[in-house]
């Protein structure tokens, strides 16, 4: 592989950290998403400020918890995704077009282009309306209802079951890997199936899986790859339709021999993550950590 010394103009802190950082690949940030309510719609962003150890602001800050599960108001520890209603088990949720205004906490749900719910989740009345609405969508029997979960400072990411640090990991998906999977299986795979925070392009297919344990740059933010993202049946649901129509996990397994698509990353430095920002992966000389 051709190794290029990092150019002066890429990231001033690349230089500041280590003049010996050797660039091994470049790409760009294509799309950014936040999913304010676990299991509900993706909301695109143009840019977001990140801080060390912090997660994607407003990502998975609400969830619909199972009434008979481990979540209680005030729960401060991470829980398995099985404790929540989400696409892996409740694919019809993807048939709803949802948007949470993170300033006002107003959740809007649209079906076929029509508003069917507008509820201020910050009020008891609005939260009640949302719970009644989702009780019906989830087809729960009489006497049961989902619990609208929100715990200040916490987020209901899948990784939150691993601890408070992992709770704030971002997810990154490499579009080249998605295209490779499409080509190998003769399918069309909407990258939104993976519900990642960051979609990147320009890196070689599947190379992102080797970034676990490595530090790299997403725009102006230094991150560390911490874990490959193991995929579940939530990816089988077609965004926007609520139909399970493609066995993505099996497709990956058949063609790659594993269940991974994308990686989790931990934010190491404060900075602005923007669409179009440069992705720089590389390595420090042996025995020397970047930074």
């Amino acid at each position: 592989m051709r190794e290029i010394r990092v150019r002066q103009n890429i990231h001033e802190h690349v230089h500041a950290i280590s003049g010996a950082f050797v660039v091994k690949g470049r790409g760009s940030v294509r799309e950014l998403f936040v999913h304010p309510v676990k299991g509900l719609g993706a909301q695109p962003l143009d840019r977001v400020w990140l801080r060390p150890g912090g997660g994607m602001p407003n990502d998975r800050i609400f969830a619909l918890a199972r009434p008979d599960g481990g979540h209680r108001p005030g729960t401060r520890t991470g829980l398995s995704k099985k404790e929540f209603f989400a696409l892996v088990s409740d694919h019809r949720l993807a048939g709803l077009d949802t948007h949470l205004d993170v300033e006002s906490d107003v959740l809007t749900v649209r079906v076929a282009g029509h508003d069917v719910l507008k509820a201020d989740l910050g009020t008891a009345e609005g939260a009640g309306a949302a719970v009644r609405f989702f009780t019906r969508v989830l087809d729960l029997p009489a006497g049961t209802a989902p619990v609208l979960a929100r715990e200040p400072g916490r987020r209901f990411t899948d990784a939150n079951a691993l601890g408070d640090g992992p709770m704030n990991w971002l997810t990154v998906v490499n579009l080249a890997s998605v295209r490779d999977l499409e080509a190998r299986t003769g399918t069309t795979i909407d990258p939104k199936r993976f519900r990642a925070n960051v979609l990147v392009d320009g890196l070689s297919a599947w190379s992102e899986l080797d970034l676990v344990g490595q530090e790299f740059y997403l725009g102006g933010v230094r991150v560390r790859g911490v874990r490959r993202t193991k995929r579940c049946a939530a990816t089988e649901v077609a965004p926007g339709t609520g139909l399970r129509d493609l066995p993505v996990v099996t497709l990956i397994q058949r063609t790659r021999g594993h269940h991974f698509m994308g990686i989790h990353v931990e934010v190491l430095t404060a900075g602005l993550l923007e669409k179009g920002g440069e992705v720089v992966v590389g390595s420090a000389p042996a025995g020397q950590r970047v930074g």
Binding site: L96, V109, V111, L117, V137, L243
Partner: peptide, 11 residues
Amino acid sequence: AVRAMTAHWRV
């Protein structure tokens, strides 16, 4: 069309 327009109904 009917499936899309009944996304908020009990399945």
